[in-house]
Every structure is written in C-alpha cells, then in structure tokens.
C-alpha cells in the first residue's frame, strides 16, 4: 500500500484539557479577541484544505451514489437504484469476495509473522539491526515499483522465478497470469512489503515492556513461554489491536498494487473493491454507481472499526480487572 499511516487515533494521550492559556494579564478582552483572530489566521489554510477536500467530497459522494452520473453531463437522481443494482452485480460480489479473501490472508499473516520476528529480534541476537533493516526496506518501496518489479520476476516466460523453478525441476507457473494463483501472489507481494512495518511497530512496543515485570516473573519461576503468554503479550495487546485495525483498513483498500500488476484480472480473479470503484468511475464513466460501491465499503470499514473499538474496550476492562 502506498498510502501511509494517517494514524488511526487511539484517544489522544490524556493531556490536560487543551489550553486554558494562562494569558498574561493584559487588557484581557481585547487581547483575547486579537488572539482569536490570530489563531484563525493560523488554522484557516489547514481548515480549508482538510475540510474542503474531505468533508465536502464525502457528502458529495453520498449524493452521487443516488445519482446517475457520467462525470460530464448533468447527473440524474435515481434514488436507491445504484445500491439495488450493486446487490445483483456478480462482478461486485466477486470484488467483495476477492477483497475479503485478500484481507483474511494478509492481515493475520503479516501481524503473526511480524510478531514472531520482533520477538526474535528483541532477544540479544547478533545482526539484529541488519535483519531489521532488510525486513523493513521493502516497506518504503512504492506499490508501483513493487508491482513492476514483481511482474518482471514472476513473468511466466522471462521471469527469474520460473527460471529458478526450472533449475529445481519444477514446471513453470503462471503466477499473476493464473486465475487460481494471482490473488495469492498479490498477498505474497504485500507480505514482502508489509511485514517489516509490523516488525518495527512490535519492536518499538517490546521496548516499552517493563524489564522488571519479565524479570520478576522469571524469578518467580515462570518459563519463557509463560512470561510471553502472561506478561509480554498482554502488555503489547493495545499495539496488536492497533495493527489489526491498521492492516485491515489498508488491506480492504488495496488498489495500487492490483492496478500495476493485474488490472483486476485474470478473469476478474483480483478485482478488489477499490479497483471496482475506480473502474466504474473513471473507465466506464458510471460515477454514481462507483460512489455507491465506495459507500458500501466505507460503511463496512466503519463497522469494522467500531467493532474493534468495542472489543478493545472490553479487553481493557478485562486486563484492568486481572491486574487489580
């Protein structure tokens, strides 16, 4: 994914309620008014850009989803037609299935692998820094570059992968051009670029696990596995939830890699929801229909996020209960 971490916000660290500024005693009211004016000048550019290009489009999108629009001629109100049509569209159903399959594979694998590698690297092991660098480097490579690179490596005729298989006596594979493999290959490429992110996040979290806690548990005779299960993992649980949320949201929105490698093919086997939206709006010029599809995904994301938040709150309470 090329879109980077706009952070999913965990509630901001409880800082004291923002700025009841201890304003120096000046002619109070006039100074206050001047200060407010200055503050507005400071925030105005950000407000215009951020709200203008997010709140306005979100509402516009909602309107569009009830219209027929080709982006050129004036659009026509069609009520729930777009949504009704979506429900019967086998291509959209396939896009939803593909997206869910991709997410169901990528999210647990990237987090699980990230956790294992971080736990290993967190021990005092030689070359830990080098390993971390190598695992993380692919994360800064853009999806376009990844896609072009892997379509070359995995090219059925000229690719290095089949050449390697040839030397090993394995018959050549279709990879991205095989409808049965393409989605799995995309998951693999995403793991190549996305696992390092999980490793780095987990490593940072492990730094924050208090050493006294693990040492005390070891002194009390807990085996390494017990320390891991009862001390380390519960301590980093909030980070796991963050990663789960983060990776799920990026997986549900995968687009760039698909566009560069398969353009949704072969036979629609890698058409994901965002690709479907893009195709409807900017290839088929049925923007209203695309907007409706985008809203279906948007609502799904919202539900996922809300559900996770709920689970986490319950989890927090359980941990609090256990420690008190």
């Amino acid at each position: 994914m090329s879109r980077l971490p706009t952070p999913i916000t965990r509630p901001a660290p409880r800082t004291p309620a923002p700025a009841a500024p201890r304003a120096p005693a000046r002619p109070a009211r006039r100074a206050g008014r001047r200060e407010a004016a200055t503050a507005w000048v400071f925030v105005l550019p950000s407000v215009l850009v951020i709200l203008g290009l997010s709140v306005v489009p979100v509402l516009w999108s909602l309107l569009l989803s009830f219209q027929y629009s080709d982006l050129l001629t004036p659009s026509v109100w069609v009520g729930w037609d777009n949504y009704r049509q979506l429900a019967d569209d086998p291509q959209f159903a396939q896009a939803v299935r593909n997206t869910l399959e991709y997410t169901a594979l990528y999210v647990p694998l990237s987090i699980g692998l990230g956790l294992v590698l971080a736990l290993v690297l967190d021990r005092r092991i030689r070359f830990a820094g080098l390993y971390r660098t190598l695992l993380f480097v692919p994360f800064v490579v853009s999806a376009a570059a990844q896609g072009v690179l892997f379509s070359f490596i995995l090219d059925p005729e000229f690719g290095a992968a089949n050449s390697l298989l040839h030397h090993l006596g394995v018959s050549p594979q279709g990879f991205l051009s095989d409808p049965g493999q393409a989605l799995l290959v995309l998951v693999g490429i995403s793991l190549w670029s996305g696992t390092g992110f999980c490793v780095v996040i987990y490593l940072a979290a492990l730094q924050d696990v208090p050493r006294e806690l693990t040492e005390a548990a070891t002194l009390d005779g807990a085996g390494r596995r017990h320390v891991l299960r009862h001390v380390t993992l519960p301590t980093i649980a909030p980070v796991s939830v963050f990663l789960l949320l983060w990776q799920t949201i990026s997986a549900l929105q995968v687009f760039d890699l698909v566009y560069v490698t398969t353009k949704g093919g072969p036979l629609g086997s890698t058409t994901v929801i965002v690709y479907f939206v893009w195709e409807q709006a900017f290839r088929n010029f049925t923007a209203g229909y695309g907007a409706a599809a985008a809203y279906v995904l948007g609502v799904a994301l919202l539900v996922a996020a809300a559900a996770l938040r709920l689970v986490r709150r319950r989890g927090d309470r359980r941990i609090e209960g256990a420690t008190s």
Binding site: R3, L53, P57, V58, S61, L252, V277, F282
Partner: peptide, 16 residues
C-alpha cells in the same frame, strides 16, 4: 477526517 477512506473522496475530489 483521518478515518475517511480514500475511495469515498476520490470521485468528488476529482470533480472539485
């Protein structure tokens, strides 16, 4: 607005 997915804004942003 940080939680708004890109595909919800991309079509209208293009129009803007």
């Amino acid at each position: 607005t940080m939680a708004i997915p890109f595909q919800l804004t991309m079509i209208p942003t293009f129009l803007v």
